[in-house]
Amino acid sequence: MSVVFSRPRFRLEPYVEFAKVAMAKEATYRFDVFTNIASVLVRVYILRTVWVALYAHNAAPSELPLHAVITYSTIAMLMSLVMDIDQTRILRDSLHDGSIVLDFTKPMRVPLYFIANGTGEVLFHAVLMIPALALALFFVHIDVPSFGTLAVFLVSFLLGYSVGFCINFILNCTAFWTLEITAVQFIVTWITDLVGGELVPLVLFPAALQNVLVVLPFAAMFSTPLLIYVGHIPPAQYAGALGLQAFWLIALGAVSVVMWRLGARRLVSQGG
């Protein structure tokens, strides 16, 4: 059976501490922080230029006028500040160097430790979104939706983020079986960028392809919150859109749990 057989009283405190420490650790790489924000701003600027040029030479699609597509890609870049983090890399690392054995000698739920650590890192980067957003508002004029839409967007963003977290966790869990997962991870990131709607809104894809892509979990990560933000998904469709995201979150959450259990079972039967 799984390693966590019996469960004494659960305390949240250590995991909060782990998250805080991870957050503080991220903050020590200050240079990283500045380059991160700078790179987001550069990408925002480049994408804006590309969209302006594309729209000037082609008939603008009725679904997304120029200002909407610029808003879309700016918000997408800001989201990538937290979405593109390898949140549970620490799991892969500790399997790699064998230190996971020591993690298991401590009275803590090891997956929660990894999750807390990733969450701390991400929270730090989430804070970074604020100056990046301010700068983006200043340099590129983006649409600001109504308060209600903004609230739904935030919920959708959180769901999308969680879906991405699960995918990341599942990928890092494969390190229980094989330590070489960089290639797989690269492919998944690339697929996400492409078919998740991070770079190009899915509504600009051919209809047949679109119908397939919108139901994939990758669309749940980027496309859904972004289309809610720019108003392409109207309030009448909120329930369906959020419901699909929630479905993916539950499904991939279940896969995460199974992957962890199988991995941990392998670890306790085959050693670190």
Binding site: V3, V4, F5, S6, K25, S99, T105, V268
Partner: peptide, 26 residues
């Protein structure tokens, strides 16, 4: 131990000479 890992962990201390349980950056 393998059935009650969490409780057992509370009772034991471990030092592996080749590995550290300290947090590298802290």
């Amino acid at each position: 131990p393998h059935r009650q890992r969490l409780e057992n962990a509370q009772n034991i201390g471990v030092v592996f000479g080749q590995r550290s349980q300290l947090y590298w950056d802290l």
